[in-house]
């Protein structure tokens, strides 16, 4: 089969099947949605919130909302973009509540892992986290999705509803800024 058809079948058919399952009111769909989106969404939420704990809480809220809004998701033009938008809204809701002081403060914890065996693992993880946390959130989410979830600019642009050029420029500016922030590691 042609490679492009492979991509289309990989990316589109599962969403169509998920939407059909949602329309059938099949409770097993929750697990299918988890398998398809949980990893990407958790990474995205960690990029937005810079906290694994918060990202997990928001992910739970997102899944409950997905279930409650399943009739809308079943008819959504792009299921993936819809799910990402829900995740983004929930993340910003948490940030807003936190700014108003209505929830507990963010837990300072590591959300980036450097595999054991590397002697500088903890220090490197902390430096990378600090550098990423210093980036503006739009640049950080693009870098995380590109580097850690292997998404293309086109895929990210579709998920976030932005143009590929915007995504590419955010990535470029983010990397340039990281070059400054991580100058000591490079040298």
């Amino acid at each position: 089969m042609n490679r492009s058809w492979d991509n289309i079948l990989d990316k589109i058919l599962p969403d169509n099947m998920l939407q059909a399952a949602l329309a059938r009111n099949d409770p097993a769909t929750v697990e299918l949605i988890w398998d398809r989106y949980a990893g990407d969404l958790l990474a995205y939420l960690q990029a937005v919130l810079c906290s694994r704990h918060d990202a997990e809480d928001v992910l739970q809220t997102v899944f409950v909302r997905i279930v409650r809004k399943r009739h809308r998701l079943a008819k959504a033009r792009r299921l993936d973009a819809y799910v990402y938008r829900m995740a983004r809204n929930e993340a910003f809701r948490l940030i807003g509540r936190r700014k108003k002081g209505r929830t507990i403060k963010a837990v300072n914890e590591s959300w980036l892992i450097v595999p054991e065996g590397r002697h500088e693992s903890n220090e490197l993880a902390e430096q990378l986290q600090a550098a990423l946390a210093n980036l503006p959130q739009p640049q950080r989410e693009v870098i995380v999705m590109k580097i850690y979830r292997q998404k293309t600019f086109l895929e990210i642009s579709r998920l976030l509803g932005l143009s590929p050029n915007t995504i590419a420029s955010r990535y470029r500016y983010g990397i340039e800024r990281l070059r400054t922030l991580l100058g000591n590691i490079i040298s």
């Binding site: 988890w34 949980a38 990893g39 958790l42 990474a43 960690q46 694994r52 997990e56 992910l59 739970q60 899944f63 959300w111 980036l112 892992i113 450097v114 595999p115 590397r118 490197l124 993880a125 990378l128 870098i143 995380v144 580097i147 850690y148 979830r149 990397i175 990281l178 070059r179 991580l182 590691i185 490079i186």
Partner: peptide, 21 residues
Amino acid sequence: IEDILRKAHLPEPSSELKERI
């Protein structure tokens, strides 16, 4: 920079988290 970033990774959702959610 990209290579340095790739030295780290984001953890996948744990099975406990999957069960809970």
